[in-house]
């Protein structure tokens, strides 16, 4: 009896917390289904008089939303690909090979991972200007790769290290070359780690805003975050479109994020939560 009462209190508190935490999402849903007239009604109301589905199609024709999506997708997949190419060998090296400076490198990756992009944005702006890469998607591919690289190496290093040495050695003794062993033995076993790292980079690049704001001027090259920000900057914001567009923009990354959330927390907190 006493225990049941305790559980009831817990459930009640959780519901209150969820109502508070999800508040802006409720606002988003409510607004996305309203016509303009209802959006700017004073006083406002929560439930739309009737569900105004048209916002979800109008937003594609009234704004270059598809272009923003394509740009974000190019930047995020470009960064993910580049990140993988660079980070897999590096993570393998720190996890598997003995060399002078290994610990120092691991430590440096961990420190570097935490630096604010703002510290270097002034310099990077100059560098990209000198390279003639201002207002290009490739500049964003590069910065997104750079700022996810250290953490990716860390995460993957963690995965590689959990694979028993013996498995690889068996393959090596059987006459596989080192490269073949990595491709056919190590990588498949570390696949969950590779996928986690991949998703992490993709999400990071998809959500990046500050570098896009600094490096991109042309409307046709803007990624989603910046494109939507432009909508907010207008005199009278069409919030019903903005909320509809953000539902499109945010849902895929939320799903991806929930897939990797556990590994992410583990990677960030390290041995402190391994018990």
């Amino acid at each position: 009896m006493k225990q049941n009462k305790g559980k009831f209190v817990v459930c009640f508190l959780i519901i209150v917390i969820l109502l508070v935490l999800l508040f802006p999402f409720f606002v988003t849903l409510s607004t996305a289904f309203k016509p303009l007239k209802e959006v700017y009604a004073s006083p406002p109301h929560w439930i739309p008089y009737r569900l105004w589905w048209r916002n979800f199609s109008d937003v594609w024709t009234k704004y270059p939303l598809a272009q923003y999506f394509i740009n974000s997708f190019i930047i995020a997949s470009g960064a993910t690909l580049l990140n993988m190419v660079i980070c897999i060998p590096a993570a393998y090296a720190v996890a598997r090979l003995k060399f002078v400076g290994r610990k120092f490198l691991l430590f440096s990756f961990l420190v570097v991972q935490m630096f604010s992009p703002i510290i270097v944005v002034i310099s990077l702006f100059k560098i990209f200007a000198r390279l003639g890469m201002i207002d290009t998607l490739s500049s964003l591919v590069i910065v997104n790769t750079v700022f996810t690289l250290a953490f990716s190496i860390w995460m993957l290093n963690g995965y590689f290290s959990t694979i028993p040495m013996e498995i690889e050695e068996a393959a090596l003794i059987d006459g596989c070359t080192r490269l073949k062993t990595i491709i056919h033995v190590t990588l498949p076993i570390a696949m969950p780690g590779v996928v986690t790292t991949l998703i992490y980079t993709f999400i990071w690049a998809w959500n990046e805003f500050m570098f896009a704001l600094t490096l991109i001027n042309t409307a046709a090259k803007k990624p989603l975050t910046l494109g939507l920000y432009d909508l907010v900057g207008r005199w009278e914001v069409q919030w019903q479109y903005l909320t509809a567009a953000s539902l499109f923009a945010v849902t895929p990354v939320i799903v991806l994020f929930i897939l990797i959330e556990k590994q992410l927390v583990r990677g960030l907190a390290g041995g402190a939560i391994k018990g």
């Binding site: 935490l21 999800l22 802006p24 606002v27 975050t225 903005l242 953000s246 990354v253 929930i258």
Partner: peptide, 24 residues
């Protein structure tokens, strides 16, 4: 969800939530 969502987009949605005349 608040962590999983895109931070810049959440910030924009909050701006609307905080709106004095029409915000919920």
């Amino acid at each position: 969800l608040p962590w999983a969502s895109s931070v810049p987009i959440s910030a924009m949605l909050w701006q609307w939530t905080y709106n004095y005349d029409f915000g919920l």
